[in-house]
Deep mutational scan, measured.
Amino acid sequence: MASQGTKRSYEQMETDGERQNATEIRASVGKMIDGIGRFYIQMCTELKLSDYEGRLIQNSLTIERMVLSAFDERRNKYLEEHPSAGKDPKKTGGPIYKRVDRKWMRELVLYDKEEIRRIWRQANNGDDATAGLTHMMIWHSNLNDTTYQRTRALVRTGMDPRMCSLMQGSTLPRRSGAAGAAVKGVGTMVMELIRMIKRGINDRNFWRGENGRKTRSAYERMCNILKGKFQTAAQRAMMDQVRESRNPGNAEIEDLIFLARSALILRGSVAHKSCLPACVYGPAVASGYDFEKEGYSLVGIDPFKLLQNSQVYSLIRPNENPAHKSQLVWMACNSAAFEDLRVLSFIRGTKVSPRGKLSTRGVQIASNENMDAMESSTLELRSRYWAIRTRSGGNTNQQRASAGQISVQPAFSVQRNLPFDKPTIMAAFTGNTEGRTSDMRAEIIRMMEGAKPEEMSFQGRGVFELSDERAANPIVPSFDMSNEGSYFFGDNAEEYDN
């Protein structure tokens, strides 16, 4: 993207840094990872977990959730003011799984939030270390993106479920800051804005008074975040219109849905970061690795190297396929839920299948599930090659597409044709070009129609051997075009429920 120079890199967003050079960025990201790792080690000690239990991804998720809940100030305040039966607002906890007599047992633990905050700050040299908290939120978000298709949420806001490739980060909490905003897809931002506008339509006082002023500035800020994701002048001009509207209503909703559809071809720039579970960072720190000293990046080879040398386990339900569970977590670790499966298959070195073909449910185990038949197995999170994460949407291309997802959002900077089903997408653009945004709409449609099938995206960008740390010898991959490109292809993934 041309304006790259004016933006802070995501590592800076990730670490609240002012302008830093590459070495400083690597050190501050490393410091953040160190903090998460030290916190995780301490929690495993508190909970008396064995090494194996500490490497269980379900335990990692519970521990991450506990610290996120302990620092969720708004919710904590709300819980104190609106006490609900049987919930102690000062405590947080969740299921911890232990191996007892050759069987997995679930144990519900409860801790004072104050105590968890103390352990977290102690692991982070006394700081609140917001960057580390956001990092864990993005890992949870990436896992949700890989596990669930947001059909219901899309339909509720009037969008087409086939636009799911635009929904990265749709389950990120509001408090995820600049680093969170960077990884949100165009569809996620559109959905947040539509929800806001709908509230304004239904509630006369939404934009009024002292609160209304705050609401208005939040609305304009979200519009600017979305505008910054678009790469064409016409899309940005249309966002200006939406932002400046005196009284946002149905016309703005129409414009936003139009823009979301246009992003299936004229893709937005959305950041991709490899955020790993805390149970990967903990053992690495415990083994003596100093992330701050060595430096770390979320968008280069580092996460690949770390996963190459990590042992992570997962509980497996009786009829689940461990290899499929591994694929789910591998995609989440690489922030690749909406990437082209052919690119992923090449990088991973084994075939990556669409969601609907995987015999696996989510990673988390519900409290009512029976533990008797639970097994555990090693997650295979290694890769054959590594590639640089991208934040450009890439230019655009036609490809055989599917009944489910009709476009992709690249996660890796790797040369390819970008699949999208042009006739299906263009069919949504018939007729409606009147109104105050008509010239911009016409211009956007013209650009979409001009998108050429034979153009290559990320020209000359390749993948790298894991021994090639400096990215000196790019390998331009070859793809098996007979395979499906979309992950949520004609899909039956479970729906995400809060």
Rank of each mutant, 00 (worst) to 15 (best):
R19V: 08
N498I: 14
S413P: 03
T45Q: 02
A22Q: 08
N309L: 12
R416K: 14
L344D: 07
S438F: 01
V476Q: 02
G94M: 12
Q4N: 15
M137T: 10
Y289T: 01
D51E: 09
L276Y: 02
D255M: 06
A337Y: 09
I444S: 03
F489H: 14
F258T: 02
S326W: 08
V186W: 00
R38V: 04
D439I: 15
S3Q: 08
M426R: 06
M136G: 07
H82T: 10
G187T: 06
Y111P: 04
G158S: 14
G5K: 00
S84H: 01
P95L: 03
S297T: 15
G93V: 01
T45E: 04
S457A: 10
L306E: 02
R117K: 09
T147F: 09
Q42F: 04
S165P: 12
A401H: 07
V29T: 09
G404V: 10
V414K: 04
R436E: 11
P277S: 13
E455K: 06
R150K: 13
I96H: 04
N205D: 07
Q12E: 00
S326T: 08
R236Q: 04
V280G: 01
Y281I: 10
H272Q: 14
M371A: 15
I63L: 14
E252I: 07
A178Y: 13
R55F: 09
K452A: 07
T147V: 13
A234W: 08
M239D: 08
G282F: 10
K91N: 08
G485C: 11
I316Q: 02
E24C: 07
S297L: 10
N125E: 05
P161Q: 08
F488W: 03
Y296P: 12
C279Q: 10
F206P: 05
M13W: 07
T188L: 06
T151C: 02
A131Y: 02
M105Y: 11
F412C: 08
Y10S: 03
R216F: 11
K351M: 05
M426G: 00
G17I: 11
S141I: 10
T433Y: 13
D72C: 12
T390A: 01
D491Y: 13
Y219L: 14
A493Y: 14
D112N: 15
E11D: 13
H135G: 08
I197E: 03
R384Q: 04
Y40P: 05
K227M: 11
E443T: 03
S367T: 15
G126D: 03
T130F: 04
S69R: 05
D290N: 14
T6E: 00
S478F: 14
R162V: 04
R416N: 09
G126Q: 10
A373H: 08
L172W: 00
E469I: 10
S262D: 06
L133M: 13
N125Q: 13
A493D: 00
V109M: 07
T157F: 00
F291D: 11
T146R: 01
Q12I: 08
G362V: 01
Q405F: 08
Q168N: 08
L307D: 05
A472E: 12
D468Q: 03
Y496K: 09
G295R: 07
I406V: 14
R195I: 05
C44F: 04
F488T: 01
T130G: 01
L226H: 11
Q168M: 12
A22D: 10
P283G: 15
A451D: 11
H140I: 12
T92E: 01
M239N: 02
R195W: 10
K103M: 11
T378Y: 11
K77T: 11
R74A: 11
M440F: 05
A387V: 12
Y496P: 00
G393Y: 03
R208T: 04
N211K: 02
E81Y: 11
P322M: 13
D127S: 11
G169Y: 04
M159K: 05
D302T: 03
D497Q: 00
A401F: 00
F464Y: 00
E469P: 13
S413V: 07
A471W: 00
S377W: 05
N205V: 12
S407A: 05
G295T: 10
K293E: 14
P354I: 09
A233L: 02
T232E: 05
M105E: 08
A332Q: 08
E14C: 12
A218D: 06
L466R: 00
S217V: 14
E434N: 07
F429T: 00
A278I: 14
T433N: 00
P173Q: 15
T232K: 13
I119C: 13
P322F: 09
T147R: 04
T45M: 11
Q20H: 01
D203S: 07
L259H: 06
Q58M: 01
S353K: 10
R38K: 12
A153Q: 11
I119R: 03
F420M: 12
S274R: 00
I365T: 06
L276A: 08
L259S: 11
Q58K: 13
A286S: 11
I36V: 14
F489M: 13
I194M: 11
C279R: 03
L79Q: 09
L328R: 08
Y385C: 05
M137Y: 10
L193K: 08
N417M: 04
E14A: 03
Y219Q: 04
L307M: 11
Q241Y: 02
R74K: 14
Y296K: 03
W386S: 07
G187E: 05
E53S: 13
V242T: 09
G177N: 02
A373W: 10
R208Q: 09
P83G: 10
Q409W: 13
A336C: 12
A336Y: 00
Q415E: 00
G86R: 13
Q241E: 10
N309D: 01
A271V: 06
M238S: 13
I138C: 05
T396V: 03
M167T: 08
E294Y: 06
I201N: 04
M32C: 03
V190R: 03
G288W: 04
S176N: 01
C164R: 01
M447S: 13
C44P: 02
Y219K: 04
G94Y: 06
N125Y: 13
C275F: 07
R400Y: 06
A179P: 03
I41G: 13
G460I: 00
L108W: 05
A411L: 07
G93Y: 03
A337M: 04
M189V: 14
N368F: 06
F230T: 14
K98C: 10
K351Y: 09
R384T: 05
S28L: 04
G185W: 02
Q327C: 06
Y289G: 04
L56K: 02
A286M: 11
T188Q: 12
G356Q: 09
G185K: 00
A234P: 13
N205E: 05
C164L: 03
E192Q: 04
A123H: 06
Q311K: 13
Q399P: 12
Y111Q: 09
G362C: 03
V476P: 12
S353W: 10
D160R: 03
L259G: 14
A251E: 06
K184L: 07
R382A: 05
A286V: 06
S407K: 10
S165C: 13
K98N: 14
T92R: 04
G288R: 15
P322T: 13
G200E: 12
T23F: 11
S392C: 07
R243V: 08
R342L: 05
H82I: 04
S486R: 02
F429G: 02
V352I: 13
L266K: 15
S297K: 09
K91I: 02
P303E: 09
S84N: 15
E434K: 12
F489E: 02
L358E: 09
G393C: 09
S245I: 01
A472D: 06
K357V: 05
Q4K: 05
T130Y: 03
V29H: 00
R118F: 09
A131C: 07
N417T: 13
R150T: 01
L328T: 06
A131M: 12
A428L: 03
L79S: 06
Y296F: 12
D439Y: 00
H272M: 04
A178D: 12
Y148C: 05
R416P: 03
Y496R: 06
R389L: 03
G460L: 14
Y487Q: 07
M159T: 02
E294S: 12
M105D: 12
G249P: 08
L307S: 05
F420A: 14
T134Y: 03
P161M: 02
S274M: 04
T171N: 09
S438C: 03
E454I: 12
A332F: 06
A284M: 01
C44E: 13
D128W: 01
I388D: 13
N250I: 08
R174N: 13
V29I: 15
I316D: 05
M105P: 10
V280N: 10
A22G: 03
G450W: 05
Q415C: 01
P83K: 01
G288E: 06
G86C: 03
L466G: 00
